Simulated assay, not measured.
Amino acid sequence: MTQAPATVRPLPLAIVLIATGVIGWYAAFKLVLDKLEVLVNPQADLDCNLSVIVQCGKNLGSWQGAILGFPNPLLGVAGFVAPMAVGVALLAGAGFARWFWISLNVGVLAAFAFCLWLAFQSIFALSTLCPWCMVVWSATIPMFWALTLFNARAGIFGNRMTRLGSTLFTWVPAITVATYLVITIVAQVRLDVLSTL
């Protein structure tokens, strides 16, 4: 089995996977609890409903909140376990085959794309910002950039990507902040969030 080169130290990636996995899992779990509360009491005043714009009730009750026929947060509760497990395994010194890294990256890419789609739906279709949803997005974004650029640096995507990955991997925090800023600016321009706080 082909493994990532041993010369690439996975400690930063392990920490990112564990930290973002824990944060994302917790936010998804809180959304599940809120969804259960709304199912028991449709008139429930959720802690995450801060204003007309900053709330999770509208998102949880929308078709976008259950795109596969069940509440989206269940995907997060199940999905965030994988990066946490991989992060812990990396701390323990585990090595993984190339196919494993690619599979994990595809899964995290799908989560990243889904979060961007949900952010678009939240801002443009629902005209809300769901606090716990934003925490999930905030965890998924650095997870995606860190994993993808680590894999590029390690040669998982081929030798031609190694130099680009090596250059950009150290920029993961800046790339993450830039992604946050794009979403924030779009939300502010579309919803004028600051005037409602």
Score class of each variant (00 low, 15 high):
79 G>I: 04
80 F>S: 04
81 V>C: 08
81 V>A: 14
81 V>Y: 07
82 A>L: 15
82 A>G: 07
84 M>T: 09
86 V>A: 09
86 V>E: 06
86 V>S: 08
86 V>P: 05
87 G>W: 01
87 G>E: 01
87 G>Q: 04
88 V>Q: 04
88 V>H: 07
89 A>Y: 13
90 L>M: 06
90 L>S: 09
91 L>Y: 05
91 L>H: 05
92 A>Y: 12
93 G>T: 02
97 A>Y: 07
97 A>E: 12
97 A>C: 06
97 A>W: 06
98 R>Y: 09
99 W>E: 11
104 L>P: 07
106 V>W: 10
107 G>Q: 02
107 G>A: 12
108 V>L: 05
108 V>D: 02
108 V>H: 04
109 L>G: 02
109 L>A: 15
109 L>Q: 00
110 A>I: 14
110 A>T: 09
110 A>M: 09
111 A>C: 07
112 F>M: 05
112 F>N: 01
113 A>W: 04
114 F>A: 12
115 C>E: 13
117 W>G: 14
118 L>I: 05
118 L>H: 11
120 F>E: 07
120 F>Y: 15
121 Q>V: 14
122 S>Q: 15
123 I>T: 10
123 I>F: 07
124 F>A: 08
125 A>D: 15
125 A>L: 13
127 S>M: 10
128 T>N: 11
130 C>Q: 07
132 W>A: 10
134 M>Q: 14
135 V>L: 15
137 W>V: 15
139 A>Q: 12
139 A>L: 06
142 P>N: 03
142 P>D: 03
144 F>K: 00
145 W>M: 03
150 F>W: 13
151 N>L: 01
151 N>V: 02
152 A>H: 05
152 A>R: 04
153 R>Q: 14
153 R>S: 14
154 A>I: 00
155 G>N: 07
156 I>Q: 08
157 F>A: 10
158 G>T: 04
162 T>N: 14
163 R>E: 14
165 G>E: 01
166 S>D: 09
167 T>V: 13
168 L>V: 04
169 F>N: 11
169 F>C: 12
169 F>L: 15
171 W>L: 14
171 W>T: 06
172 V>A: 03
174 A>D: 05
177 V>M: 05
178 A>M: 07
179 T>P: 04
180 Y>M: 00
180 Y>S: 00
182 V>E: 00
184 T>K: 03
185 I>L: 12
185 I>H: 00
186 V>N: 00
